[in-house]
Design a protein around this nucleic acid. Structure first.
Lengths: 210, 210
DNA sequence: TTACAATTGTGAAATGTTACACTAATGAGG
DNA sequence: CCTCATTAGTGTAACATTTCACAATTGTAA
């Protein structure tokens, strides 16, 4: 008991949650099984059962899992039963896209601020948000007790801003800058560099002849 | 001999490559070591050496790795010695951001086409590219022998388009739609749903009291 | 009421990954 | 030439993750 739950298990839970949400939306079934989930996700049913078993017994032999109940349980486990307020840092093309993406809503996140250092962009309106000057970033995080940030700035600026926002209280960073960030223990970072992901795929491809 | 190289090893190579590129740009050293790389990336030096040893002997005892040489070797391993031509599917806010991102250049990728089904967007110019109608997608992939695609469309459209582009010859897909794609064997897919990444982090955070 | 198909949760086995610890090579400095 | 600090590559041990396989439970249908 009291074992650490592997990171890799945590990483799959949001995927399960997303798949369950689709099943719920389809509205055809109130129940599902590890086999169905596994088939949809390309994961073995045993792994899904094992993963869930770290947190409790959510299913029923013979009938499987009640979709809505499992969704609620997963949301609790992942701390998504409250809505996390998020700052976006950088209002260039990517920040602009993030501000306009409505997929955060209903999945646990609410983008409430967007910042940039470019005075031509500051003050502009993006999907209901007004771009703030980056000088106000530190105070905003501090005063509003924001814990989650999305970094959408050039690589050169990323580490400096990271140090600043961590000092101000940020505890989770989704980083789009193509650079490896260094953060203190206890601060979560996820990296999202599209080129890294594409380079990972080309290894398996046969290069074009030209 | 002839062993399969683990996916997880392949996944780290692009990260090594990116770090080496920064070291090369800094221009202060022509050589580096597994220890330095590890320190920068938060990875153990033993792991870096082990990973590289799958592909050959690139270093020299006592002196480490020649940065430029290792960069070239990694680019070859990852099939980045030719430039991959890429189609972006979806010219909404995200597609727009991708079209304007110049970070693909010099890292092995060249976005040459962008498609959308919205006639109000088709014909618009984005960073030198003209948005094409999605009806031309299949023929373009086929005729130009494109193997890499970035999907930036709503979830509802993603699987249908995936089936279409795979049939047309696409072999690697970077998917931004918040849905799990099903593809035939031999087709690579990487998923990039920001919400999944954020949900993974909130598990480790203490939720705000409100 | 009984038989049966479906399904979970889980120990144990199998497989995969990382870390350790050591040998051998290298170059710098005396 | 010798010594020493540095470092790669690697076999093996330690650790982590996945898969297997099965008992137990459930609901359905005869």
């Amino acid at each position: 008991m009291g074992n650490e739950i592997p990171d890799i298990v945590i990483g799959r839970l949001p995927v399960y949650l997303r798949a369950l949400t689709y099943i719920a939306q389809e509205g055809e079934k109130t129940n599902t099984s590890s086999h169905e989930l596994g088939r949809r996700l390309g994961i073995s049913s045993a792994q899904i059962r094992k993963d869930l078993s770290h947190f409790g017994e959510f299913g029923k032999q013979g009938t499987g899992y009640h979709v809505q109940y499992l969704i609620e349980q997963l949301r609790q486990i992942l701390h998504l039963d409250v809505e996390w307020r998020v700052v976006v840092i950088g209002a260039g093309f990517l920040g602009h896209a993030l501000a306009h993406y409505n997929g955060f809503q209903h999945r646990g996140f609410d983008i409430q601020w967007i910042f940039d250092n470019n005075s031509e962009i500051v003050g502009r309106e993006m999907n209901g948000l007004v771009v703030q000057h980056i000088d106000e970033l530190e105070d905003t995080i501090w005063e509003e007790k924001i814990q989650v940030a999305i970094l959408a700035v050039p690589a050169e600026a990323a580490q400096g801003l990271t140090d600043l926002i961590v000092k101000a209280g940020i505890r989770a960073i989704l980083n789009y800058a193509p650079i490896n960030l260094t953060v203190p223990d206890g601060v979560q970072v996820m990296h999202s560099d599209p080129v890294i992901q594409m380079q990972r795929m080309t290894y398996y491809l046969v290069p074009p002849k030209r």
